[in-house]
Amino acid sequence: MGSSTVYGQEKKEKKDKNAPPQKGSLYLSPVPVIGANPAFGFIYGVGGSASWFMGDPSTTKISNALLGVAFTTKKQTIVTLKSTVYGENNDFILLGDWRYLDSSQPTWGLGTGPQSAKLASNDFGFDDGSIEGNSEADMMEFRFFRFYETFLKRVNDKGFYAGLGIHVDMFRNIQDQLLDLESTPQIITPYYAYNEAYGFDQEKSTLVGISLNGVYDTRDNINNPYAGGYAMINFKINPEFMGSDQSSTQLWMEYRDYFDFTDDHQNILAIWTYANLSISGDLPYMNLPAIGWDQYSKSGEPYSQGRFRGSNLMFAGVEFRKHLLATKNNPDFFGAVVYANATTASGKANGINLFEYVEPGYGLGLRFNINKKARTNVGIDYGWGNYGTSGLFLRLNENF
């Protein structure tokens, strides 16, 4: 009698594990965080992906949240929570981007081009090709808090949404360690020079705004799209009366598309492009458009976050995803990708124009599917770029 009961429980558990997705189905995928790049050194920590259905999967897209807690050999702490939530029957979308960083990075020059690696007026430059990079004493230290939430209501059944967002960025305890005003001649950094020119505080900055948003989203799955497209336009208004240091406006325009050449998800070409533009007023230096500061911090491989920064920035990337190996229990178990991208940024303060310099990136990677129902992938990428840049990246879900 006892053995029969145990057998029945095992059979039920196996059935539940293989049950098709339904409303409320939750898929958790923990993964270690490992990486390396010149600005952060070696990165280690833990991350996790949670995917779930707010409604019937036949009429509701899967939602996802990514949580990461990481530390680096340059004594940095990085805590992030990124989310895309689809309401029941895709009635609404909620986009979240929360971050806390006790971090540091070089104060790269503005715009793309050779001057972007020039960190100070004494011609001191950043060694992109070395994991050791510059010493910690050459970095700009800071604490950063971000709270972004955007609510979008479905407009029609064609995939169009419209809505509002609130956006808070606070940088505190900024220490520009390479700056030396006591030396002869003085050593001036791009960060210090920008703040002096545009009237910003050297030790802190605040940017608070609201946004008007339009989204077109027909992707079949946000974790690993096989089909559909995505477009977003975001106009952000940052008035002083809401807490911003200075009033300004910004415009974000984005487009993604996916092409399945074999109709069985074995060979997919994915493209992603966006423009991040300063429309009016002046932004704090750390809020200027910069590579790697998108919602999921995945643009610009293999360059470090913030490596290219300017008044305006444009990015375009293409990725070919190839399925390689299936298992008995997972037909999408293993694959590989090759990618290429390009970034251009302007420097208002130094006369660098968009497209005057275009910085390429390229690389390859492996993909391991760790949850076939949620399409959750673990990605390991290695890439190369200009100025001797190279980097190793561990990703949860596809880059876009």
Rank of each mutant, 00 (worst) to 15 (best):
S4L: 11
T5E: 08
V6K: 13
E10W: 07
E10I: 13
D16S: 06
A19H: 13
S29W: 06
V31W: 13
P32G: 02
V33A: 13
G41I: 00
I43Q: 06
G45N: 11
T60R: 03
I62W: 03
I62K: 02
I62R: 01
S63H: 00
S63C: 01
S63K: 06
T72D: 02
T73R: 04
K75Y: 03
Q76C: 03
V79A: 14
V79L: 14
T84S: 14
N90C: 09
G96W: 10
Y100I: 09
G111N: 12
P114A: 09
L119M: 14
N122R: 10
D123E: 13
D123P: 01
F124L: 08
F126R: 03
D127V: 10
G129M: 02
A137I: 06
D138C: 01
F142T: 03
L152M: 12
R154P: 04
N156A: 05
V168M: 12
R172H: 11
N173Q: 15
D176E: 12
Q177W: 00
D180S: 08
L181Y: 02
I188K: 11
Y191A: 00
Y192L: 04
A193F: 07
Y198R: 08
G199V: 07
Q202N: 14
S205E: 04
V208S: 03
G209T: 04
S211W: 11
L212C: 00
V215P: 03
D220Y: 06
N223T: 01
N223W: 01
P225I: 01
A231P: 07
F235T: 08
E240I: 13
F241W: 15
S244P: 09
S248T: 05
T249H: 11
Y255P: 00
F259Q: 09
D260A: 02
T262R: 13
W272D: 11
N276I: 02
S278A: 10
I279E: 14
S280A: 14
L283C: 07
S304L: 05
S304Y: 00
Q305D: 00
G306A: 09
F308Y: 15
R309H: 05
L313A: 07
E319M: 07
E319H: 13
R321L: 08
K322M: 09
T327S: 15
T327H: 11
N329A: 14
N330Y: 05
F334E: 07
Y339H: 13
Y339A: 05
A340V: 06
A342G: 08
T343R: 03
T343G: 02
T344N: 02
S346Y: 05
F355N: 12
F355Q: 10
E356P: 01
G363C: 06
L364P: 06
L364F: 15
L366M: 15
N369E: 10
R375V: 05
V378R: 05
I380N: 08
N386S: 12
G388S: 11
S390L: 01
L392H: 06
F393K: 15
L394Q: 11
N397T: 14
